[in-house]
């Protein structure tokens, strides 16, 4: 009873809270990093160096009036943010933070596929949010979003297949263990796949330069134009939680998860003094930093360019990568 119910429930509670807290601080981090990139200071008023801004923002959003437009489909309007956030949190069930079973909720043998399939559910939140608002800009945005997410999902999935070919397992723990055994992070074996997954990840989380569904200069607020208060906050949470998921996936598959750098060099063993989960979280935040950095640097793609990039560049390259990987696998 303890092992099957209480401990997993405890773990889930801890993890969900950890993710939500991480998200609020990620928002602060984004504001700070972008501010530094733009030679500003960012939030400075709430707490020392604006650290408490991470608390102030959620409190503000919770206390705000929650408006449902008169013409909106109220059930779907309420359901949409939930449908957007829940998959983003569910995914963490299979993300291992360390080698020990203590550090993950479940290590299922189709872990990677589980992540892909659950994140693909997240698109409903965006589509329904845009549709239920019964407003033109959100509808346009949600059309963009659904087309974008579906097409980039194909590219990412195709790429991940080539990774699965090299590891021979779909279990995330198994993938990291495979990297430890081969002594090299897969990012170095599969650099093309790394780039593809990263770009696809940017697109799937609607981040710059692929932030078309919420391109505020074109479609005002995108699919969440009509949302306010906590429901808006849920979309916000979902977006940032998805960013963490993508970073975690990239780290697990390509950057050795919780492994220290250079797992094959023995004399660097002192690096293992840091607990595994710190390595993992550190790497994840490094990637989150890259996400933010890109946002501060690049302009936004146009919808048709985004589509042609996805279909005419990423998917063919992903298939090519798959073929090359397969040939190598067979020949060597």
């Amino acid at each position: 009873m303890l092992d099957t119910v209480v401990i997993p429930l405890l773990k889930i509670a801890v993890l969900v809270n950890a993710v939500l807290v991480a998200v609020t601080f990620l928002v602060l981090m984004e504001r700070k990093v972008i501010a530094w990139a733009q030679s500003r200071l960012g939030p400075m008023r709430v707490g020392p160096y604006g650290i408490l801004q991470a608390l102030a923002d959620p409190i503000k959003l919770i206390l705000k009036e929650d408006i449902t437009p008169v013409k909106a489909d109220r059930y779907v309007f309420t359901l949409a943010p939930i449908m957007s956030l829940v998959p983003a949190l569910v995914v963490f069930a299979v993300v291992p933070f360390g080698p020990d079973p203590l550090y993950y909720i479940g290590d299922i043998n189709v872990g990677l596929l589980f992540i892909i399939s659950v994140t693909s559910i997240g698109v409903y939140g965006i589509i329904l949010g845009g549709w239920a608002s019964n407003s033109k800009y959100p509808l346009l945005a949600s059309l963009r979003a659904s087309a974008q997410l579906i097409s980039y999902e194909i590219a990412v999935t195709m790429t991940l297949v080539s990774v699965i070919l090299t590891t021979g397992t779909l279990s995330l723990v198994g993938i990291v263990e495979a990297q430890r055994e081969s002594g090299i992070w897969f990012g170095f074996i599969q650099p093309v796949a790394l780039v593809l997954v990263f770009i696809g990840g940017l697109a799937e989380t609607n981040r710059a330069p692929f932030d078309l569904p919420e391109a505020e200069t074109e479609l005002t607020g995108g699919f969440h134009t009509e949302y306010s208060g906590m429901r808006f906050a849920l979309f916000f949470l979902a977006e940032y939680a998805n960013m963490i998921v993508i970073s975690a996936v990239v780290v697990l598959i390509f950057f050795g998860g919780w492994l220290r750098p250079f797992p094959n060099i023995a004399w660097l063993g002192f690096l293992d003094l840091l607990p595994a989960w710190i390595w993992f979280v550190g790497k994840v935040f490094l990637f989150l930093y890259v996400f933010i950095w890109i946002r501060a640097t690049l302009p936004r793609y146009r919808y048709d360019q985004l589509m042609s990039l996805g279909w005419k560049v990423l998917i063919p390259v992903a298939i090519g990568n798959l073929v090359v990987t397969g040939v190598f696998k067979v020949v060597f």
Binding site: V110, L113, F114, I116, S117, V118, S120, E153, T157
Partner: peptide, 10 residues
């Protein structure tokens, strides 16, 4: 998982 990915998600 494929059911979710293909039917529900696609």
């Amino acid at each position: 998982v494929i059911q979710v990915l293909v039917y529900a998600g696609g």
